[in-house]
Design a protein around this nucleic acid. Structure first.
Length: 492
RNA sequence: GCCAAGGUGGCAGAGUCCGGCCUAACGCAGCGGCCUGCAGAGCCGCCCACCGCCGGUUCAAAUCCGGCCCUUGGCUCCA
C-alpha cells in the first residue's frame, strides 16, 4: 500500500515518491505575525501535522519547515498597539502562535525561519533573477517579469494573457506588465497599505509608524511578499521540495509566483507535490483575520480542549472546505468523549486482567485488525482523516462490545486494541489518550473520591435523594459520575 | 467575466479520480429496548438520502459524458 496524494499542480491524485527515498522535505506557508492565530489557521496546522505524523509513521525522516512572515505592512500597522516597533509586534504574535501550536499538541517543526533573518538570501535570489533577465529594476524596486517564465499560470491553471487583463495598468506604472509582481520594494513601507490595515481600531497609535528597511543593490528597501518563501525554503530544504502545503486561498498569486521566481532562478522544479488545505466557512464565508469573523485558537482550546478541536479538524478531509459552527464542535466534543472513554475503559479492563488468561475473543481481534487496515488505507488515500477516524470509531465499538458482553476479558485482544488506539489515534492523529494529571488534578481526584465515598454510603443506606444531590453537585463542577458494576467512576 | 473547489439524510460529513459489494460509511441529534434504585455510559435496534437540475452512455451511475442552476475560494492582505 503506497501513499497517494492530490497534487494541485497536475490536478490528479498521484503516487507519492520523494526525491530521497528516506526523507521528505516539506514546506508550509506560515502566518504573518500581525494577528492572533485563529481556528482557520489551526485547521491547516492540524492537517499538516497529521500529514507529517503519517509520513513519519511510514518511515520517512520528515524535514518540516514553517516560516513566520515577520515583515509586512500589517505588522507595521500594529506598532504602537502591540509593540514598540515591528520586531516587537512580531515577537508578541510569534509567542502567541507558538503557545497555540503547543496547546494544539502539534509536533514541533524542524525549522521556523523568519523573513527578517533571511534578507541576505532574498537579495541573492533577486540578484540572480535580475542577472538572468527574469527581473528588472525600476525606481529602486525590482519586479519579476512574468513574460519571461513560459509556464506562468501552470499551478492555478490560468492563461497569462487573461491575468494581464485583470491587472490595473495604472496601479504601478513602473511595471512592464500588469501581472509583474514585486520582488523588492523601494524605500520604506507603503503608508497607504498601513492605513488600510489600521482601519479604525487603533486609536492613539503614531500617525506615521516607521517600517524597517534593508540595504540592497537597488538602495534601501523591503522584500516583496512572495520571494520570502522561495528564499527560505531553498535555504533550508534545497532547490526542490517534495511537498509544499498551504491554504487554498494562496494558490494564486502567492504560490504561482513562488513557482515562477524559484524555477526561473534554479531551472529546477520548485515543489513536486502541491497540497492545498481548504478553508473553514462560517455563515457561508471563510473565516479570516481580515473579515474579523474568527475564533482564536487560544479561546477555542480553553473552551473545548485540544483533543476535541483536533478531532473536529480531522473529521473533514484537508482539501475539502468545512463548515464551522458551535453545533459542529459540540459534536466533535461528543465524539471525543466516546473515543477517549472507550480507550480509558479498555485500559482499565486491561489492568484488571491476568496476562496469562486463556480467553480469546476472535471478534475483537478481527475487528482490531480490520480497523488497522482501514486506517492505513484511509491515510494512504490522500490523508483521508475522516475515513481514518471512522476506523478508530469502529475499533472503539469493538472494544466496547468486548467489555460489555464478555464476562472474561481477552488480554492480548485488549492489548492489541489499546495499542492500535495509541498508535493511530495518539501518534498519528495526535490525540492525547489517557490524559495527564498534574498536582492540582491529583488533589481534585482525591477530593472527588472522597465525595464518592460519601455518596456510596448514602446509596448503601438507601438514601438516594442525598446520593443524587452529591452527584448533581459534582456534575455542576464538571465531574461526571457514572455507576458501574465495579463501583462508581468519574470523569473530569 | 476568468480560474479553482464544491452541491449527498434534521445536522455534520466520507464515498465520486479506478461505474456494480452504495437500498450510500463513521458520527451527532431523535425514537424504542437491554442494563440501572434513578441518571449516565455502554450494548441492541429504529428513524432520516434514490446522492443540485436536465439529458446521454452502459447490462449497471452518487460515481463516466454534455448542458444548466446555485454556493464558496482566488483574480487585492489572507491558512
Amino acid at each position: 500500500m503506497t501513499l497517494r496524494v492530490r497534487n494541485t499542480l497536475s490536478g490528479e491524485t498521484e503516487e507519492f515518491v520523494p526525491e530521497d527515498p528516506d526523507e521528505v522535505r516539506l514546506y508550509y506557508c506560515g502566518l504573518t505575525t500581525s494577528d492572533p492565530p485563529h481556528l482557520g489557521h489551526a485547521r491547516s496546522w492540524v492537517h499538516v501535522d497529521v500529514m507529517s505524523r503519517w509520513l513519519r509513521h511510514l518511515g520517512y525522516d520528515v524535514q518540516h519547515v514553517e516560516n513566520f512572515t515577520d515583515v509586512n505592512e500589517k505588522i507595521v500597522a500594529r506598532v504602537g498597539r502591540d509593540g514598540d516597533d515591528e520586531n516587537d509586534v512580531a515577537e508578541h504574535y510569534i509567542a502567541e502562535i507558538l503557545d497555540s501550536m503547543r496547546a494544539l499538541n502539534l509536533e514541533r517543526t524542524e525549522v521556523r525561519p523568519r523573513v527578517s533573518e533571511h534578507v541576505p538570501e532574498i537579495i541573492d535570489l533577486v540578484e540572480t533573477l535580475v542577472e538572468t533577465g527574469h527581473a528588472y529594476e525600476s525606481n529602486g524596486s525590482v519586479y519579476f517579469d512574468v513574460t519571461t517564465f513560459e509556464e506562468y499560470g501552470k499551478l492555478s491553471n490560468q492563461d497569462l494573457a487573461h491575468i494581464e487583463e485583470q491587472g490595473d495598468p495604472d496601479e504601478r506604472s513602473e511595471k512592464r506588465n500588469p501581472a509583474d509582481f514585486a520582488l523588492w520594494k523601494a524605500g520604506g513601507v507603503d503608508t497607504d497599505a498601513i492605513e488600510r490595515h489600521r482601519g479604525h481600531d487603533h486609536p492613539g497609535t503614531p500617525a506615521h509608524p516607521e517600517g524597517q528597511t534593508w540595504e540592497s543593490p537597488w538602495g534601501e528597501g523591503r522584500p516583496g511578499w512572495h520571494i520570502e518563501c522561495s528564499a527560505m525554503s531553498m535555504a533550508h530544504l534545497g532547490e526542490t521540495l517534495d511537498i509544499h502545503v498551504g491554504g487554498r486561498d494562496l494558490v494564486f498569486p502567492h504560490h504561482e509566483n513562488e513557482i515562477a521566481q524559484s524555477e526561473a532562478a534554479t531551472g529546477q522544479p520548485f515543489a513536486n507535490y502541491w497540497l492545498h488545505c481548504a478553508l473553514f466557512e462560517m455563515d457561508e464565508e471563510k473565516m479570516s483575520s481580515s473579515l474579523g469573523n474568527f475564533v482564536t485558537v487560544r479561546d477555542a482550546v480553553a473552551e473545548y480542549g485540544a483533543d476535541a478541536l483536533r478531532l473536529f479538524m480531522v473529521s473533514g478531509t484537508y482539501n475539502s472546505r468545512q463548515t464551522y459552527s458551535e453545533d459542529a464542535i459540540d459534536e466533535a466534543v461528543e465524539r471525543w468523549e466516546r473515543l477517549s472513554r472507550a480507550y480509558d475503559d479498555a485500559v482499565a479492563a486491561l489492568d484488571s486482567v491476568d496476562a496469562h488468561t486463556k480467553v480469546v475473543d476472535d471478534d475483537l481481534r478481527a475487528a482490531t485488525e480490520a480497523a488497522r487496515a482501514d486506517f492505513e488505507a484511509a491515510m494512504n488515500d490522500d490523508f483521508n482523516t475522516r475515513e481514518a477516524l471512522s476506523a478508530l470509531s469502529d475499533l472503539a465499538s469493538a472494544l466496547n462490545v468486548h467489555l460489555a458482553e464478555r464476562d472474561a476479558y481477552d488480554y492480548r485482544g485488549l492489548r492489541e486494541g489499546v495499542e492500535a488506539f495509541e498508535t493511530y489515534g495518539g501518534d498519528v492523529l495526535g490525540f492525547s489518550f489517557g490524559g495527564e494529571s498534574g498536582g492540582d488534578v491529583t488533589l481534585a481526584e482525591d477530593l472527588v473520591e472522597l465525595v464518592l465515598d460519601l455518596r456510596e454510603e448514602a446509596r448503601d443506606a438507601g438514601e438516594y435523594e442525598r446520593a443524587d444531590r452529591l452527584r448533581d453537585e459534582l456534575e455542576a463542577l464538571d465531574v461526571t459520575v457514572e455507576d458501574t458494576d465495579s463501583g462508581p467512576t468519574y470523569r473530569l
